[in-house]
């Protein structure tokens, strides 16, 4: 039996970042003191970070994901599906779930060490975010363990909008390299 299938077509042409831009971004990304496994403990809280869900962010994210679902751009289509208006993709919160983003509130800058591996990811989606929302991300280390000489850290993040409404809860478990 033939499988029903969603397959994405190619989107607009994309300019590959030139070497200079890549180098600049790489250097910027790599600046900061490494946060080592031994420096983290269960209960450790990270400084809260906030981000605004802008129209540009939603558009760029949807284009990157090649996700053309109209509920992200068309208020009437979204209303037909039971939403109050156009919504942001639920996984837009993932942008702020990588360890480098979770650590972005530390001053001076602290970064995850190079070589971390994304091992496990959990999410509970509770409500939707929309353009104009400000999302607060509160993160805490909930688990730390070593198995077969691999160092696992689980960080739980709660995403709440400007009205105190919970949007999502995520748990990321990287294998920490150092």
């Amino acid at each position: 039996m033939e499988e029903r299938c969603y397959r994405e077509g190619s989107l607009s042409p994309f300019t590959i970042m030139d070497d200079l831009e890549t180098k600049k971004r790489r250097e910027e990304y790599s600046k900061g003191k490494w946060l080592l496994f031994d420096e983290m403990n269960v209960g450790m809280e990270f400084p809260q970070v906030e981000f605004e869900v802008t129209k540009e962010l939603v558009e760029k994210y949807c284009e990157a994901m090649e996700d053309e679902n109209v509920v992200f751009s068309d208020a009437d289509a979204a209303k037909n599906q039971g939403f109050s208006g156009a919504i942001a993709p639920p996984t837009i919160v993932c942008i702020f779930a990588i360890p480098s983003a979770l650590l972005s509130g530390f001053v001076p800058k602290i970064i995850p060490p190079p070589g971390n591996i994304h091992y496990r990811q959990e999410y509970e989606f509770v409500s939707v975010a929309s353009v104009g929302d400000t999302i607060n991300v509160k993160s805490v280390v909930i688990k730390k363990e070593i198995r077969r000489e691999r160092k696992y850290i689980t960080i739980e993040s709660e995403y709440v909008n400007q009205d105190g409404e919970k949007i999502a809860v995520g748990r990321i478990t990287p294998i920490w390299s150092k």
């Binding site: 994309f14 590959i16 970042m17 890549t22 971004r25 790489r26 910027e28 990304y29 790599s30 962010l57 760029k60 994210y61 284009e63 990157a64 994901m65 993932c94 942008i95 990588i98 480098s100 983003a101």
Partner: peptide, 12 residues
């Protein structure tokens, strides 16, 4: 690269 540009995750 497009995803990196959208999300700001420029991990080399």
């Amino acid at each position: 690269n497009r995803y990196a540009n959208a999300t700001g995750d420029f991990n080399p």
